[in-house]
Simulated assay, not measured.
Amino acid sequence: MASKMGVKNVVQTFLLLVGVFTSQAIDVNVIGEWKTDLGWEVTCGWQTLPNDTLQSVRLYNNGQQFMIFRPEKHGTSRSEVFRTPENFMNVDCTTTADRGQQGKCTLILEPYQPPVYDFTYTCEVSGERPMFRIGKKDFYVRVLVPPSDAVLHVKSPEDPTSPRVTLNCSSTGLPAPSLLWNVGGDKVQADFSKRDWNATSKLWQSWSTLSFTRSDLSSTATCLPEVKSNNETIKGKAAVYNSAESLCGILKLTVFTMMALHLLS
């Protein structure tokens, strides 16, 4: 009986120590967002316990360490630039409190070429002896920027009374948005589609052109942008062309022209 009680007490003590160690781990928080004309900005912030001292911050890309920040070696901050054929990566780590008890590492990932693969960014923060507390957090960076609202431009025909109309639609996103046309409730194929990688915005830009004949005052043409990522479809805001408004304008122009000719005769 005494032996069983001893084992039970040891187990309880061990679990208590584990609970204390876990509850006193370093607080690590990682946030990220897409920045227009820049790329992804991912920030790892940390806060240790008041009696702790920062030993190191290790940064990983898909489980592979690419940078370590040690205040004992680097001082209160460290900045590094990493270049690959696909992207430019700038990392800036700095402490904002004595002994490294608070600080952050900011990663700017700027793609040179269209990014394809998602990645996991990991930030691991370690304290000094005797506790060697550790805080660790993963952040999943998805190669996805939802499509922008569709922008529609109407190309005016040479004959203003012609029922034929040409529409140009555009949208940006990552991956490249598809532009889907619908006329009078029916899906139709575009006459021309194109996409280009914009090195300034770091996004794909898609264009599409459709020509059709306005058959009545109730028909509309809709251009809907969407991107597909990880078996998910993300739609942007559609742009709508209303034939009624255009045809009414043509009718008014025709009536005005006839009245003017009548007055001149």
Rank of each mutant, 00 (worst) to 15 (best):
I26F: 03
Q12V: 11
F139C: 02
S243M: 10
V145G: 08
M1L: 05
L15M: 12
T53C: 12
T257K: 08
N230C: 08
E41A: 11
N168I: 15
C169G: 00
P111M: 14
Y121D: 03
I31N: 02
K4R: 14
F139Y: 10
A199E: 03
K194G: 05
D138G: 04
Y241F: 06
V143E: 07
T200D: 02
E232I: 04
G173A: 15
E245Y: 06
A97F: 05
D98M: 07
V154P: 01
L217K: 10
V116I: 15
L263C: 03
T161K: 15
N198P: 07
E41R: 09
T233G: 06
D37L: 15
E124N: 14
V143W: 01
E41Y: 07
A260W: 14
V18G: 10
P111A: 11
S77V: 09
G100A: 01
L253A: 15
S77G: 09
Q65M: 03
Q55C: 08
T213L: 00
M258P: 12
S23R: 11
V116Q: 10
Q47Y: 05
R58I: 14
Q55Y: 12
S162G: 02
E232A: 11
K8E: 09
S243W: 06
L54G: 06
M5D: 04
V91H: 04
A260F: 13
M131L: 13
Q205P: 10
Y117C: 13
E124Y: 06
T233F: 06
M89W: 13
A239G: 03
C44A: 11
K155A: 09
V10T: 15
M5W: 04
P130F: 07
S79Q: 10
A2R: 09
A97I: 13
S265T: 06
R78P: 00
L203S: 03
S77C: 07
S219A: 14
E158V: 11
V10C: 13
M131A: 14
P177R: 13
G135Y: 08
D159L: 02
P130Q: 05
L210N: 01
A221N: 11
K35H: 02
A97L: 14
